[in-house]
Design a binder for these strands. Structure first.
Lengths: 166, 166
DNA sequence: CGCGATTTAATCGTGTACGATGTATATGTA
DNA sequence: TACATATACATCGTACACGATTAAATCGCG
């Protein structure tokens, strides 16, 4: 039943599968390790972002805009692998917080351009310390950090290409 | 602005930060690599689980029960790092699908025991091929697979302990 | 025994995330 | 020009995920 192989346990009544850290009984699932790491990042960001009034996905959108202002909804969706049905309400919330403006493109009326307001730009200062905090919390050496990121990129790329083929 | 260091770009008008694969402009965020890998797993599982009528989190719960039947909601929450407010409705949906039963413990009336129905047990056969499919889709060597999993476990552990201290 | 603290679960509201569908605008092509 | 197609965005319904709160059962301690 492991995600990697099925060499561990096929009976229905066995105990958990071997020595484990503080993780649960799904330690042999790579997907679960990713799932848990993502949850852990979410928890950490939640506390860091609380005073900014942002959620984690909202923070990702703001980070994109801080790096390059004035993006279309499509640009943001491509960057974050998110659909319009997720982004439209999310960006409207950012607009309600007066952090961004949504402006119909005059050349192509289908396009909505998202750009920072003064408040949105100013928020960048308050967020400046966050990457450092996260890096420290991750507790990884530079090499481990890079290796992990590159392994995840490979994984994501492989998973996506399989999904396309299906 | 990188999650690792701030050595790349502090100006507000620069281009993206260097050479990138097919990823977007947040490639220097480890959290984002995790976020994307998690999304990619979700997409893959969505297609694999479609014929079973399960979502990915539901599949994780069923997997726990297939390995050891009869768990309390608390057990499941501990194993998946999820709260009751997530699990209660989720398990009720599994109950509505007649895959599990929810039974109040007679010894301790606070506890709800979750156990597989015949349908729930039978579904295991249909799900048997999934781990293999996922492992192949990940396209990693055994060593890369194990290294990645262990790096993610370290990361999760570090992130959680920081969260606790806060 | 009594009573406050803890444990276990549930409920409510907000915010992603996505499949299915809809709508308006733009583009290509005969 | 007319019409099919594609693109960009929006809406709706369902399902996680979690903070805050509530409720019931159990436990611990005087």
């Amino acid at each position: 039943m492991s995600e990697r192989t099925e060499n561990k346990d096929a009976s229905g009544t066995s105990m958990e599968t071997g020595p484990q850290g503080q993780g649960g009984d799904l330690d042999d699932f790579l997907c679960f390790a990713v799932y848990e790491a993502n949850l852990a990042f979410n928890h950490l960001y939640r506390s860091l972002l609380e005073e900014l009034g942002l959620t984690y996905p909202q923070y990702l959108v703001m980070t994109l805009l801080w790096r390059r202002n004035e993006r279309t909804v499509k640009d943001i969706g491509d960057a974050l692998s998110l659909e319009y049905n997720t982004l439209t309400p999310m960006i409207k919330r950012l607009e309600a917080m007066e952090l961004v403006s949504r402006i119909r493109d005059t050349q192509d009326q289908r396009v909505v351009n998202v750009c920072l307001t003064a408040r949105g730009s100013a928020l960048r200062e308050k967020a400046a310390a966050i990457p450092q905090c996260v890096a420290e919390a991750s507790g990884l050496t530079d090499k481990a950090f890079e290796d992990l990121k590159s392994a995840l990129d490979t994984l994501r790329s492989n998973l996506k290409s399989t999904g396309d083929r299906s």
